[in-house]
Structure formats: structure tokens, C-alpha cells
Design a binder for these strands. Structure first.
Lengths: 288, 288
DNA sequence: GCAACCCTTTGACTAAAGTCAAAGAAATAT
DNA sequence: ATATTTCTTTGACTTTAGTCAAAGGGTTGC
């Protein structure tokens, strides 16, 4: 990697944090300590203490006391979780929401102030540059790992996949339509900061041929180029297991998927199975 | 201004600070408190306590003690300012420089780690996006103000202008070649975070015609589009004072300047004076 | 039914970060 | 030359941020 990229990123980081640090909760939380302001923001529409602890990376005792302090100021209400009474739920009171709204107004005002030295055209370019940078940084932070088919993350992804197809396919899609776990040779899950945001399964059709199934990216993580990364990783896994060819099928409503397969070197072939949800079948030769 | 720009900038800020906050001194200063790590960085090649205080926005007592602590650890050496013995100068010792270098190595390592999930092409796009964003943010932070011709900032800019021309013109350029201050009707100075980074002067040739002179941007602030902004501001000032036409001249070695004038609506005209440093003369009609 | 584990609270700390005011030494203004 | 201002140091604080361990209810697995 060229040193230039590293230097540029570091220079930008220095400049940005110094310059835009102004947008930070610090200046927004008025007379409130930074920790409390952040906590208020993170509680937002309500969250369990457990969630808050991991999101903010705080010590349990420390968090407990801070929540108590906000409660004392009438900004937060704490209740017991309805089904698991070990958990506590924090939510903002009317006053808490008002303070959060004020915090947002200030942040908006500051951001506006930063932008109003620019022409509308320049603002557009800034917005675009920043969007591209964010997308690439997010992508850089995603890791793909093979996981156990029965792990919670695997099940969550497959459930998300099934739920989405059920909504998008005119004929619907049932959980029973998923490949049985024992037929999955490799299940890859994409993690964005420890959160599972996509998956893809590899099944062996025969020694020569593998099938890619259930390739899915969480809606929050679309547009990053993750689908293609999962696809490439699955192909590598197939090659590593000695397969020479990968196949896959797709439903006609999934236009973007078909387009991605084509641009990734897949060619359409006749139906190789009787999948009721498939409209197109594709194949890619990995090893000749 | 559309709310979208504000939202995008705020979202990016949130994401970036959370994600890249890792690059922050916090993680770099090893077991060192954040304040000390930042101070070490800020001292860099040496600075007065006064400077450090304003740069870091610290309380005088607090800073004094921190510097003392770093001195105690053998990382910093403090001496009395040669000409003003109220001031103290801090500079890094050999050990201090070594620690700063280590800090830099770590930051580089972290930045590399962030980038290595990306392909070389994606890294290139990230670098570019970040460069554009930085340039625009810097530009947004620049303010143009009319200042007194004899103010320190004005003199510093004009001196910078003269020094640069002296270097670039084959025939040289002397401070005496500058317009006498009393002939300057308006002197605009561009400030980037309170630092003067460019200037431009407006002189009245007659009631109808004004002349723009000494348009200059500090090398550190080039590439932001500041020259054009100063030019536009000068034209507005000329129009505001009732002039209908602005003229200016330029030397043949200043290719970029001539190009900018042309793309800003200036057309070449015959020499209107006998300026020894001019090769081209331009004019722009503001009011017909 | 009980052991093992989870989540939260409480007590008892420590370290870092920051504030304020007084005072001393040096420079500058009058 | 004297008063005023500037810069730094020192003492005496406070607040914020965070850690660690013990303990007490709840839940889950066997």
C-alpha cells in the first residue's frame, strides 16, 4: 500500500476532528458532561442498559450511576424489561426528548454554519465526497467469516433473507424453503463491527460443481459493494474445496442480483434444478 | 440550503469520529494521558507555552503543570524566550522525539489497518474523496474581510506577495514596487481560522474604472479556489463603489493567474499603463 | 431443583481534566 | 518611575471519567 493513502487519511483525520469536532456532543450538551450528553443521545427512542453498555463501551457500574443521574434530573425513565426482568429499559421523558431536540438543533445550526461559506454547487460536491468516503470506510470495516450454520448470527441472516424474499416474491417465501443446514458446506457471514450484515451459503452439488445460495445483504449495508465481496469470497471457498464450477439461480424480481452476477462473470445456463423460486440460472467456471 | 447537506455532513461526522476516533492520540499515547499525548504532539518542533495554550485551549495553570510533568519524564526541555523573558519555550528532547515518532508509527499502522480491507482502486477513490472534502471544508472556513492597509495582517500578506514575485520574476520584485498604501481604496484579506492566507487590493483609476492589484494566495492555501473568491469579492467592492469596469495586469510567468482571469470573464486589452512587471492587461465590464 | 450464568446495583477507590485566584517576574504604556 | 499589563507558576479545589469487586435478584441448562 502506498504511503500516500495513509498520509492523506491521517491528514484528513487531523483536520476533520479539529475542525468538525465542534459538532461534537461536547459543545452540544450545553452544561452537561460529555458522557451524559452522549448517553442521552444513545438512549434516543429507548434502549436496554445492556445495549447502551456495549454501544458506548462503558463499565456497568459507571453506566448504572449515569442513568440514575439522568433519571434524577427528570430526563430519563427506567423500567424493567417485560419478558426478562434482569434487564432494565431506559427511555427519554418529555423533558429528555426536548433536550435531545435542542441538541439536534444546535448541531444542525453548526453544520449549516460550516456549509454556508460554500456555493450550492460546492455543497453538492462536499456531500458527494463525504458520502463516497463513508461508503468506502464502512466497506473497509467489514470482515467476512465462515460461521457455524446453527449460530445465532447465521440464523438471523437466513431469517432476514427469508423475510425479505417473502415480501418481494409474488408467490411468497417460507422459512422451509431455505436449504437445510446440513446441506450447507460453507456459510459465510459479513460482519460490520461485530454486527452480522449479510451472508451467503455454499452447497456441494457434486465434486466438480458447487452451488451458491442465500446470498443476502442487510438493507442497512447495501450500496457498499458487499454482495460482490461475499460472492467473491464464496467463489474462493468453492475453489479451495476443489470445485471447478459454481452455479446459482435467481428470481426475476431480483434485477440487481442478476445484473451483479452477469458483471461478475456468470453466464446464463438452462435450469439445473426445479427451484420454484428461480427464474434464471447462472454458472461461472473457476478452473478449466 | 437543503437539509440534505446538513444531514449528510452530520451523519458522516458521527460515523467518522466513532470509527476513526481510533486514530486519535488516545490510542496512540500508549499509557500516556490524552492531554499529555496531545501536548507532546503539539510541541513538535518547539513552541512557546503561550502558543500551546491558545492552540490547545488550555488553562494556564493546567498547561504549566503538564509541561512540568513531561519535563520530569525527560521528554521536554523548557527554556526562556531569548528576547521576551516572560515567555517560556518548550521543545522535545531526544526521548520526546522518539516517543512522538513511535506515536506516528502507531497511527500509520492503524490507518493502514483501516485501509487494508480495500482494493488498491478503492483506496484511491477514498483518498480522492477525502481530499476533495478537506479542500471544500477548508474553503468553507475562509472568510474575506476588508482591513486597514497598515495592519499587521495586511503588511504580512503584501510582504509575502512581494517575496514570491521576487523569486518568480526573472527581473525580481522589490517591496518598493508595491502600490503605496494611500493609493489602495480597499484591501481585502482572506482569513483561514484567523490566519491571513491571501489578499487583494482595489485602487481607483478614475470614477468609472478601478484596478485590482496584488492578488495573492499563501502557498498553504492554494488549490482551494481562494484566488477566484478574492477576485469576485474585489469586483463586488468595485461595483459597490460605483465603478463600471475593473482592470488588472499580470506577468507572463504567472500562467495560472492569466488563465483564472480569462475564465472569470476578463478579456485582454492593450497596455493601460507602463508597469514594468506586466506582460498582459485585462479588463472586465461590471456594469454597462 | 439447583448450579451456573446474566444483568444490574452499590461501595470504595483512582486518575485525569479542569477551574479559580493569588502572586511573582518581566515588559509596556503613560 | 510608576502603573498597568502580560505570562507563568503555585496552591487548593471540583468535576468527570473510569475501574474493580462484591452482592443480589433473575434466567437458563441440565
Amino acid at each position: 500500500m502506498s504511503a500516500e493513502h495513509v498520509t492523506t487519511l491521517r491528514r484528513f483525520n487531523r483536520y476533520f476532528t479539529r475542525r468538525i469536532g465542534v459538532l461534537d456532543d461536547h459543545y452540544l450538551g450545553q452544561d452537561r458532561p460529555l458522557g451524559e450528553a452522549r448517553l442521552l443521545f444513545e438512549i434516543g427512542t429507548g434502549a436496554s442498559l445492556k445495549e447502551l453498555r456495549t454501544r458506548l463501551g462503558l463499565d456497568a457500574g459507571y453506566l448504572s450511576r449515569m442513568v440514575r443521574a439522568l433519571e434524577g434530573q427528570g430526563l430519563v425513565r427506567v423500567s424493567v424489561h417485560p419478558t426478562d426482568s434482569r434487564l432494565r429499559l431506559a427511555e427519554l421523558t418529555e423533558a429528555g426528548r426536548a433536550e435531545l431536540a435542542e441538541q439536534n438543533r444546535r448541531a444542525d445550526g453548526l453544520a449549516k454554519g460550516l456549509l454556508d461559506g460554500l456555493s450550492e454547487e460546492q455543497r453538492g460536491r462536499l456531500t458527494e465526497a463525504v458520502t463516497v468516503a463513508e461508503r468506502l470506510l464502512r466497506l473497509a470495516g467489514v470482515g467476512i467469516r465462515a460461521v457455524d450454520t446453527r449460530s445465532a448470527d447465521a440464523r438471523a441472516c437466513l431469517a432476514g433473507f427469508a423475510a425479505e424474499l417473502d415480501e418481494r416474491f409474488p408467490e411468497g417465501y417460507a422459512t422451509a424453503d431455505l436449504v437445510p443446514p446440513e446441506q450447507i458446506a460453507v456459510l459465510l457471514v459479513a460482519y460490520e463491527e461485530e454486527r452480522a450484515v449479510g451472508c451467503g451459503a455454499l452447497c456441494a452439488l457434486d465434486a466438480r460443481t458447487a452451488e451458491i445460495r442465500h446470498l443476502w445483504v442487510h438493507p442497512d449495508a447495501r450500496g457498499l459493494g458487499l454482495g460482490r465481496r461475499l460472492l467473491t469470497a464464496l467463489e474462493r471457498a468453492a475453489a479451495g474445496r476443489g470445485h471447478h464450477v459454481v452455479r446459482l439461480d435467481t428470481h426475476e424480481v431480483l434485477k440487481e442480483a442478476a445484473a451483479m452476477y452477469r458483471t461478475s462473470g456468470y453466464v446464463e445456463i438452462p435450469a439445473y434444478d426445479a427451484n420454484a423460486h428461480a427464474s434464471y440460472w447462472f454458472e461461472k467456471v473457476l478452473v478449466r
